[in-house]
């Protein structure tokens, strides 16, 4: 038996909106630790890892580890029917073939339940080792989204370079080139407006903008995004999910031939 009650149901809505275009079907894993997902996009270039820790739920009951295969587009359709202020409860029976999403309005005057069919999905979990990164950039998520969107109108790939000068996002295309440099800026009124660059060594990597733009669909989840870079490793683009967890996107770099 599984019963997870999330008072801030809008978080789950936002999570689904941020992954549904990247991944079609995925297994949600439920354990004492929390509600999690690890899945790759269909071309195996990007990987998404989500964790919502059990402590973040108002009520968290998971009698035994459960893996629930879901079509993320269908799940997103159902969660779209929840109000932004609704409390969302996820319920499933052990060995059952459905999951129920219950939506309660804050005043308890409207209660809806949506039952969705589960699916069998063959998926293997990849081991993601703890890595030391050459550079970690923390910046406003809206700024990062704006940069990815702007650059994708010029080119298909972005070169992200971190040096002492700051972080540079560059692209080139048929019509020309573009370079956007963001410097460290911690003298801001609000901490969410800060740009912080921790660099061990300069690093420069090339990525497909199509994926980066897809990751920025998670922007509504968090004011800040963390971009962790190391040569010869996928970039990690991380958005915190309130106080309860994170959504991390891993993207394999392009290789100069």
């Amino acid at each position: 038996m599984l019963e997870l009650r999330l008072v801030q149901g809008s978080l789950l809505k936002k999570v689904l909106e941020s992954v549904k275009d990247l991944v079609n079907d995925a297994n949600f894993d439920c354990s004492a630790t929390g509600f999690s997902l690890q899945a790759m996009d269909s071309s195996h270039v990007a990987l998404v890892a989500l964790l919502l820790r059990s402590e973040g739920f108002e009520h968290y009951r998971c009698d035994r580890n459960l893996s629930m295969g879901m079509n993320l587009n269908n799940m997103a359709k159902m969660l779209k029917c929840a109000g932004n202020d609704d409390i969302v409860t996820i319920k499933a029976d052990d060995g059952g073939d459905t999951v129920t999403f219950m939506f309660e309005s804050p005043t308890q005057d409207k209660i809806a339940d949506f039952e969705m069919k589960l699916m069998d999905i063959d998926s293997e979990h990849l081991g993601i080792p703890e890595a030391e990164f050459q550079a970690i950039v923390r910046m406003p998520s809206a700024e990062f989204a704006r940069i990815c969107k702007d650059l994708s109108s010029i080119g298909d790939t972005v070169v992200i370079s971190v040096t002492k000068e700051g972080v540079k996002f560059s692209t080139r295309g048929d019509i020309g080139t573009a370079n956007i440099v963001c410097r460290q800026n911690t003298t801001v009124d609000k901490p969410e407006d800060a740009t912080v660059i921790e660099m061990q060594e300069p690093v420069s990597l090339t990525f497909a903008l199509r994926y980066m733009n897809s990751f920025t669909k998670a922007t509504p989840l968090s004011n800040q995004v963390t971009i962790s870079l190391s040569s010869e490793l996928p970039v990690v683009v991380e958005y915190k999910v309130a106080e309860m967890g994170y959504i991390r996107f891993y993207l394999a770099p392009k290789l100069e031939e």
């Binding site: 990987l47 979990h125 990849l126 081991g127 891993y250 100069e256 031939e257």
Partner: peptide
């Protein structure tokens, strides 16, 4: 010319 790498090049199955 650039070649897109895949995730499995970096992370092995558990």
């Amino acid at each position: 010319k650039q070649k897109q790498q895949v995730i499995s090049r970096f992370f092995a199955p558990k």
